[in-house]
């Protein structure tokens, strides 16, 4: 809103954008993305609110900016199934299954059973060569494997978010965002309501 005062956290979309760009130059920056996992969880567990979504989520702001201000969105309603509990929780479960597969692959590299793959996997399927963003690490290869895997998760969710931004409302990613679903669930449990 034009008449509402901007706060520092209204510019966190810059951090989100920077994060995505850094991944093209040095994949190890992908580790920073863990902040987008732990901060919302800590807020919902600690305070029982979704102020991460409500205020600080740079990804949501980025979609709001590109889809809203720049108008790259049809601004249509999301289909009914997309906001259903079944789809939202189903996507949460699927997302975390894929996350654990990624952690398992990281473990395999740490244990020496598998070699580092300098690849970013888009939409859990397409393996994009990404060796240009890897310049070695002082640590174990597994540290880099996690970075490739985690960046895959972040890029995949950004691409999905951009697609639904164009097709539906700018921030339609928020409807099925696994972190949003999870923090809402935590808040619900914390407040003592079962529905």
């Amino acid at each position: 809103m034009k008449n509402q005062k901007k706060h520092w956290y209204d510019f966190l979309w810059i951090a989100s954008l920077t994060y995505l760009i850094l991944g093209f130059f040095n994949i190890l920056f992908a580790w920073l993305g863990l902040l987008c996992f732990f901060i919302p969880l800590l807020i919902s567990f600690g305070k029982g609110t979704k102020s991460y979504c409500n205020r600080y989520c740079g990804r949501g702001q980025l979609f709001g900016l590109i889809g809203g201000r720049f108008g790259l969105s049809r601004k249509k309603d999301v289909p009914r199934w997309m906001k259903s509990k079944g789809f939202r929780y189903g996507f949460l479960v699927f997302f975390f299954l894929m996350f654990f597969v990624m952690l398992w692959n990281t473990y395999l590299v740490f244990s020496g059973a598998q070699d580092l793959k300098q690849v970013v996997t888009l939409l859990w399927t397409f393996k994009l060569p990404w060796q240009w963003a890897y310049h070695g690490t002082l640590f174990h290869d597994g540290v880099a494997q996690f970075a490739f895997g985690f960046y895959s998760v972040m890029l995949t969710s950004t691409v999905l978010g951009l697609v639904t931004m164009v097709l539906f409302k700018p921030r339609s990613w928020c409807v099925y965002c696994p972190m949003g679903t999870m923090t809402q669930l935590i808040c619900r449990v914390k407040s003592g309501k079962d529905r």
Binding site: K50, S51, N54, G60, C174, C177, G180, T181
Partner: peptide, 9 residues
Amino acid sequence: VACGCCVKV
């Protein structure tokens, strides 16, 4: 989904 977009506008 309690995203808070409504609060902002």
